[in-house]
Amino acid sequence: MATGVQRAVNPVSVRGLSRRFGDRTVLSDLDLDIEPGQFVALLGASGCGKSTLLRILADLDHDVTGEVTVARRRAVGFQAPRLLPWRKVWRNVVMGLPGRPDRARAEAALEEVGLSHRSDVWPKVLSGGEAQRAALARALVREPDLLLLDEPFSALDALTRITARGLVDELWQRHGCAVLLVTHDVEEALVLADRVLVMDGGRIAHDAPVDLDRPREVTDPDFQHLRAELLGRLGVH
């Protein structure tokens, strides 16, 4: 997978993807396309394979069959920040970029997430929300065409989560990259995404655009209608 440079139009193009763990088939003959700049939320019950799909797109899991094409410039945000504790925050941000560690570039990225004052500290002194923002800066400094986010807000407290959600929205509008957000939070999906996918039985069982004006209001009747519909598809009534 991801071998050879192709002039693919879409940052994500998946055909007939299957993944088995022993006897259990987690993904079966899955197709998915994501257009440039599109914000896609991927919902599904726990264990339905959403994280597996994201890991495959992140090139972390190769034991698959099918055809997977993803943007070369991609970045991943995990559930935990996964910062290297033995590197200062700014060094974490530019880790893996070619050339010498560029502090100015790191600080510009940290500035975007409101963390420029924390650039020269050890990750251990960051709060949970700050660490997750630093991880976001680390992803965006790579100027990705595709940003893969695996439940990035789920470990944050309710208030921090709302702020972080707003930040992701703002950064996405500015950078214009395609985003695939794996989440189990229907409201979060509807606030952020252009398009919502629901996974079930190893495939994309439901694929619908979110035609709501931005910024979105949770209290909007259309929002609540969509929310109820999605919860129904997820088996919650």
């Binding site: 090139d59 970045a75 290297l84 880790m95 970029l97 790579r142």
Partner: peptide, 8 residues
């Protein structure tokens, strides 16, 4: 794993 996604 995170380091791999960063291109290291």
């Amino acid at each position: 794993e995170a380091a791999r996604t960063l291109g290291l």
